[in-house]
Computed example of a mutant assay.
Amino acid sequence: MQANTTNAPVATQNAYGKGVMFCVAATVLMGIMFPVMTDALTHVDPFTFTSLRYLIAGTFFLALLIAKEGKGAWRADGESLALAWLLGSVGFCGFGSFVFLGQQLAGPEGALTASIMMATQPMMGLLLNSLVRKTLPPVVTLLFILMSFAGVSLVVTKGDIVAALHEPQHYSANALILVGALCWVIYTFSAAHFKRWSALKYTTLTLWLGLTTIVGLNGVLVALHVVPMPSAAEVWAIAPHLLYMGPIAGFVAILFWNMGNRILTPLNGVLFMDVLPVTTFVLSSLTGVVPARAQIAGASMTGLALIFNNLYLRRRARRLAAAR
């Protein structure tokens, strides 16, 4: 008994350390994703790239699912495959198409905008949760949400709102990125409905079901000549980008994120979303896209809003528990 008592804190500390490493690694890998896409989108359209990316990532997830849960893991086990298809379409097709199309329209600085909007996803989740439950968030949380989106506006406008209002492309590009980020929030938020599925099974099955929408949409757009059929030279040009976006950002990052959140819990894991825009900003600077001071200030505002709101919700939860 004495040995178990002595080792328990060490084991807990080791698990916490692993959770931190998984979450940090995941958000760093996700942050690198947007500068990588800046170059990739100069060769192909976002729809074709999304199809190829998730076909690669999906193959890795499928292999892991079969290895861990067996061939019977494809069974629905009483869950709705129609709902899984809808959520996979919203999460993977919606996120990939809207975010990367918006990033392409925004040009070289689209990576900065996309990354900072990803950091607002926890705030979007709070709003979505309140909408579903028909209850308003606490007033303090609402203020932090406003602070978060004020930070986003600084990144998007570089602090010059008047100039941004006279550039219509800002509206369409930023709206698309925002909708794409919301798609991923809805997808993540809805995972709780699939209680009989593991996190790995939910990810794998929704990804493959969503791929029918991704590839189908891509095929329709090519057939209608909205986007061109990529040439062999263009596919070869994006091969290095796919090597990162498929196995690493599409598979390893998501796997690490799920493992880290399982250890730390989402309340703690969500704080690491702050690492994502920092990574993007640093890498973009190294590639020649240097953020303006207003953009750095805006990213800091969004990050602080996320951290302060997390701390506030923890204290509020403790007070409510003590009152009960």
Rank of each mutant, 00 (worst) to 15 (best):
L101M: 12
L286V: 05
W257C: 06
L211W: 06
L264K: 04
V215Q: 01
V220I: 15
S80N: 15
N4M: 07
T50W: 03
I116Q: 09
I296M: 14
L87F: 15
G219F: 12
M123H: 13
N14T: 03
V282C: 03
N7Y: 07
V99H: 07
G58P: 06
M21F: 13
I214H: 01
W257E: 04
V36M: 10
L136I: 13
I177S: 13
G250T: 05
L217F: 14
A67Q: 08
V252G: 04
N7Q: 15
W257N: 15
L55F: 06
Y202N: 01
F308Q: 10
A84H: 11
N174L: 01
L304G: 03
S51M: 08
V24Q: 00
P228W: 08
N218P: 03
R53S: 02
N7D: 14
S80Y: 12
G298C: 03
T48H: 00
I307E: 06
T27I: 01
P266R: 02
A191M: 11
G107N: 06
A173L: 05
C93F: 14
G96C: 02
A192Y: 07
A299W: 00
R319Q: 15
F281C: 09
T287L: 13
A292K: 14
E79T: 06
D274P: 00
M259V: 00
F256W: 09
A40F: 07
I248W: 00
H193S: 12
G72A: 01
V155F: 02
L221G: 08
L86Q: 07
L142V: 13
A232Q: 11
M33G: 05
G260W: 01
M30L: 12
A57K: 01
R293P: 10
G110S: 10
R53H: 00
D274I: 13
I214D: 00
L267E: 15
N310Y: 07
L264W: 04
A232L: 12
L209P: 05
T113L: 04
S285M: 15
L29C: 07
L224M: 13
G151S: 04
R262Q: 12
A322I: 07
I254L: 09
F22M: 09
T135N: 09
